[in-house]
């Protein structure tokens, strides 16, 4: 099984490689459609601005193929930070349209949200196997408001009104950085990758 890691030469790719290596999975860096077709699942790394990320997806001819895979629910997907935000319709951070898999648009925080926080999971899912005392690392400026999320998505975890995780079928997004959250974060990757088998 090959884990596809989206590589736009901008996001924090190395940290995802470290996490996947630790779990002993093979990975492939996805820089175009060719590698996308060879991937059994996709991890979209964090760090990046909204428009820059969407522009690069379009330039590499990955925007529509990824959207198609997600609409068909044919390729398991884990989006981290900006990788989760692009699953929505858009963001105040930019003018470009997101993938539109989930409804809604990300809004600006008054102050950067940088640091560690616990989560409250309100539905059970493969990503919610961690203990309530586990801390996760957040670093973001824009967020999706929890109260704007439709209830029929299978898993929503939130830290106050900041949407921290969302899942629908085999599509998952997390606002926090599991690759920087030590054992608790590694468990997220482990459960996501185990669900592929």
């Amino acid at each position: 099984m090959k884990v596809g890691i989206i590589d736009l030469k901008q996001c924090n790719v190395q940290s995802i490689i470290n996490s996947v290596n630790k779990l002993d999975y093979e990975y492939i860096l996805v820089t175009g459609k060719k590698e996308l077709s060879k991937s059994d699942c996709i991890i979209f790394p964090g760090v990046g601005s909204y428009d820059e990320t969407i522009s690069r997806l379009i330039d590499k001819d990955l925007f529509n193929p990824i959207k198609e895979e997600l609409n068909n629910k044919s390729l398991p997907f884990l989006g981290i930070c900006i990788g989760m935000q692009i699953l929505f319709d858009g963001s105040e951070e930019g003018e470009m349209k997101g993938l539109g898999i989930f409804e809604g648009s990300c809004t600006k925080l008054e102050k950067s949200n940088i640091g560690w926080s616990k989560l409250s999971w309100n539905k059970s899912d493969i990503l919610s196997q961690n203990s309530p005392s586990d801390n996760f690392y957040f670093i973001h400026n824009y967020y999706m408001q929890t109260n704007k999320i439709l209830n029929d998505h299978s898993c929503i975890a939130h830290n106050k009104n900041i949407l921290s995780s969302i899942s629908c079928g085999n599509i998952h997004g997390v606002q926090f950085h599991p690759e920087k959250s030590y054992y608790a974060g590694q468990k997220i990757f482990k459960e996501f990758l185990r669900s592929m088998k």
Binding site: Q10, S49, S112, I114, N141
Partner: peptide, 9 residues
């Protein structure tokens, strides 16, 4: 830089 990688970073 902010426009490329986002101000949070």
């Amino acid at each position: 830089i902010i426009n490329k990688i986002g101000k949070q970073s």
